[in-house]
């Protein structure tokens, strides 16, 4: 997969940082504002996809990356399920029970478990979308050979 022109590369270099940061902002404020894990994760995956499209990469590196993103995704979703199962041990002992202290509404550190769920779901969504994209790209590269 080939990269694009210098202009695109330069603009991408400038843009990727803010896009990535915006994704993290959306994930971290998931319990306060609209957005959250899925939206933020999709934005982060978008940043990665932008980089890949602008700079290109060869198939071997892409295959390493797809293994990495797939593993990240699996680990994140496992952590989410394990966190939900941990609720069976603490507090009211109910699945998905929010057993951490709730804090002040409107603060960044509040709402108990929800920010944690958001963070890991964000990682999972970013990994999943990147995996889908990379698999399709690898498939195209291999069949065009």
């Amino acid at each position: 997969m080939e990269g694009m022109s210098t202009i695109v590369k330069k603009v991408t270099q400038l843009m990727v940082g803010p896009v990535f940061l915006y994704g993290i902002y959306i994930i971290l404020h998931g319990h306060l504002t609209p957005g959250g894990g899925f939206a933020g994760g999709a934005i982060i995956a978008g940043a990665f996809i932008l980089l890949l499209l602008a700079f290109g990469n060869n198939v071997i590196n892409l295959k390493k990356e797809v293994a990495g993103s797939s593993n990240t995704e699996s680990i994140a979703i496992l952590i989410v399920v394990v966190m939900a199962l941990m609720s069976l041990l603490f507090g009211a002992k109910v699945f998905f029970f929010n057993f951490l202290p709730k804090g002040e509404p409107g603060e960044l550190l509040s709402a108990g478990m929800i920010p944690l769920y958001n963070i890991f779901i964000g990682i999972e969504v970013a990994g999943a979308i990147l995996t889908i994209f990379l698999s399709l790209v690898i498939f195209k590269e291999e069949s065009s050979k």
Binding site: F38, S135, L136, S143
Partner: peptide, 24 residues
């Protein structure tokens, strides 16, 4: 709607994967 969008993403990705394989 948000949850359904997530599901729609998965369905579309599956469709694309199958379509590309069929194309090959």
């Amino acid at each position: 709607a948000l949850t359904a969008i997530v599901i729609g993403l998965a369905t579309t990705a599956m469709l694309m994967a199958i379509a590309i394989r069929l194309y090959r």
